[in-house]
């Protein structure tokens, strides 16, 4: 394409932004609102996933062993458990360790004597599963190993927790999907209004022999600029809002695990910027296509 045309297209894209100032502002605002929705829903999703994961990772299986086992048998059981599928880690707490830990927590040094020389703690093996859904299966297998006296993993509560975290994840995904859809709809609507308002111009361009790409490019550039500016507004808004929210949560509701790492936020902002440009461009292409069918 000739230099004259490229310059015309660039200038035209920007001039039409200025000429249709209110419409452009409305489009920018639409993009910004859409991306704020998108960005916050991604952050929401990440946080629900983290919360779910944190809760789930706290699920452990406690295996209490028979008192009469010797050290070799204990190690054998430990190894058998290690070889089960879906095991993340196996930690042995011997009865001596258990006693010592309890003694520490009681801040006394003569617990064993107080108990009459008998250590009441059993040997305990703590199992963490790779996936909390496997906990039940692992527990029932471990129960069958001889020398295992009892297995505890918060029966009943685990099922409820899993149901809750699943539900939390689905909500996160649903929120992202709904808002992405709404954002696309809003943007294409506002660009469509823009294109419709210039239907006559496009008609005349076609009539005097402007090529399709020549007609399309100013709109694409306009969409790109609208998307970019809208995304900037959204990034600033989400950035400030989230940092405020983080401080609030950390200072008052510290037990809720939040996602606060910089890399994650940068990634979200990058997604928003790219999303804005993509949405703006795509909406332009789609809206203007209607007029370029011959």
């Amino acid at each position: 394409m000739a230099f004259n045309s490229v310059r015309y297209i660039l200038v035209q894209g920007l001039v039409s932004l200025k000429r249709n100032l209110w419409l452009s502002l409305a489009s920018i605002l639409t993009v910004a609102v859409s991306l704020i929705l998108l960005g916050s829903s991604i952050i929401f999703l990440a946080n629900t996933a983290t919360i779910a994961k944190t809760f789930e990772s706290q699920v452990q299986i406690a295996v209490f062993l028979d008192d009469k086992l010797n050290d070799g048998q204990v190690v054998a059981i430990q190894n058998r458990i290690k070889n089960l599928p879906g095991i993340e880690s196996v930690t042995l707490t011997t009865k001596e360790q258990a006693l010592w830990e309890f003694q520490e927590s009681m801040s006394t040094t003569s617990l064993l004597e107080d108990l009459g020389g008998i250590n009441p703690f059993p040997d305990k093996i703590t199992i963490v599963a790779t996936d909390p859904k496997l906990v039940q299966g692992i527990a029932s297998q471990v129960e069958k190993i001889s020398g295992v006296e009892s297995v505890r993993y918060g029966q009943g509560i685990l099922e409820k927790l899993l149901a809750f975290t699943n539900w939390l994840r689905w909500i996160g995904v649903a929120v992202v999907a709904a808002f992405t859809f709404a954002a696309l709809l809003l943007i294409s609507l506002s660009i469509k209004t823009n294109v419709n308002s210039r239907e006559k111009e496009i008609q005349i361009m076609r009539l005097v022999g402007a090529s399709n790409s020549f007609i399309r490019w100013p709109f694409i550039i306009e969409g790109l600029v609208v998307g970019l500016v809208g995304a900037l507004v959204a990034v600033v808004a989400v950035g400030f809002a989230y940092s405020w929210l983080l401080q609030y949560i950390i200072s008052t509701l510290a037990f809720i695990p939040v996602v606060a790492n910089q890399q994650f936020l940068l990634m979200v902002f990058l997604i928003m910027m790219l999303g804005g440009m993509l949405m703006g461009t795509l909406a332009s292409v789609i809206s203007v296509r209607k007029f370029l069918r011959f």
């Binding site: 004259n4 015309y8 361009m205 022999g209 402007a210 020549f214």
Partner: peptide
């Protein structure tokens, strides 16, 4: 002039 601009003529 529009008719000439869209076909890439110079100023």
């Amino acid at each position: 002039a529009f008719a000439l601009q869209v076909i890439g003529k110079n100023k």
